[in-house]
Write a protein that binds this DNA or RNA. Structure first.
Lengths: 217, 217
DNA sequence: CATCTGTGTTACTTGCGGTAACACTAATGT
DNA sequence: ACATTAGTGTTACCGCAAGTAACACAGATG
């Protein structure tokens, strides 16, 4: 009973699964998050039941697809965060890496961040589903990873763990919201956005002076 | 042709519309964002076509519903942001107001932030739909409002407009992501969360010292 | 009195997620 | 060699939700 020993059929199944995932990827890239199972099956040259055998249900397929992209993105973010440079440079590099990724493939970004409905499909079942279960897992994973980095590398006193986790999720949320808005409105260059966000994290909000005698005040 | 003069029938229709919205509200509060049109109609004691006559389609109903809650939340946030106190206190009060709101009515929060599919339903139509169109409008509105406040009240030099908008969306995103995570995990009290986030905005990340000689590093 | 406006219905279409039930092929074990 | 098993694939269906006719009725309005 060696579980690591894969039979010929199993390896063929894995290969097929990868092919199906690639087909699904193409469809999602073309149609966005609302790609239907029928469309994906058609793209793969087969019919629905096979998809369901491989991935259980739509959430399963989406999860498998999301995991691939999420892992890839997280890898590049980790690289930027681990570069040998001072803290501000690393932060800017990480922000820029994220923004470059969503800029390069906005359809993938939409799929990861706005997964239509996902999960919790079966209304006849008993599953309760808590608040927050729908949040894109990518945000959570990024938040947790950043929290870990912060906690490992920064000296934050006794509360360090709580601080790091809040900051991790908070900073990731800042990056996400600003990036989402920027991608849609394109109000400035990527470099400008990166610098302005880093300035915010570096306390420039607290340091700014009050505006006195503005127009009408 | 006085458009302000409403006939008896029109006022009755408005009243009915409000009643339907309240019924929809109850259902969404009970069932979450995936409430079906059938369920809402049943709660209102009528059948589907009437809903469609009043709101066009599901997105229309959702938009009408979201607008109500969004307006209410934005009002209370504005109040917190306009209180007579120093900047840090106002920021903390605003954060706390937001967190208290999502804590008090998580179902409403879920509905506003994760509106299932919404919009862009009709695939046969010609609408192109850009990236970001799916984002919950609440986040965008909060970001824009905060940006305006920042620009009006802070002295940020020549780039002030761009800075204010980026910061507005960034800070709102930080608040949202941290709040979402906090609501799900409940890792600390609301007051702690508020303080830690304010510390982040006040530059404590930049000021922290590097950790030296940690376990294994 | 006719008309227009809004309320309400039943019955339908379309499309999607998901599932039987069944046929075929090839690696596998005795 | 032969049955078993594990995989691929199909057609045809169910249930459900969004959305749409087509039609009946009541009351304000001219």
């Amino acid at each position: 009973m060696d579980t690591t020993q894969r039979t010929e059929q199993q390896r063929s199944a894995d290969r097929r699964r990868r092919e199906l995932l690639e087909a699904a990827d193409r469809v999602v890239l073309r149609d966005g998050p609302q790609a239907s199972m029928n469309a994906i099956a058609a793209e793969a040259g087969i019919t629905k039941p096979i998809l369901y055998r491989h991935f259980g249900d739509k959430s399963g397929l989406y999860a498998a697809l999301a995991t691939r992209h999420t892992d890839a993105l997280l890898d590049s973010l980790r690289a930027a965060l681990d570069a040998p440079a001072d803290r501000r440079e690393r932060v800017e590099a990480t922000l820029d890496t994220y923004l470059a990724a969503i800029e390069a493939r906005p359809q993938v970004y939409r799929f990861l961040m706005h997964p239509a409905e996902g999960s919790q499909s079966d209304p006849g079942s008993d599953q309760g589903f808590d608040v927050g279960k729908h949040t894109a897992p990518l945000l959570r994973r990024m938040g947790e990873e950043l929290a870990q980095v912060i906690e490992d590398r920064l000296d934050l006193g006794p509360e360090s763990q709580q601080l790091a986790r809040v900051w991790g999720h908070g900073i990731v949320g800042m990056m996400h919201a600003a990036g989402d808005w920027w991608l849609y409105e394109r109000p400035c260059s990527r470099a400008d956005l990166v610098r302005i966000l880093a300035d915010l994290l570096w306390g420039r909000l607290a340091a700014a002076g009050d505006k006195v005698g503005g127009p009408g005040f």
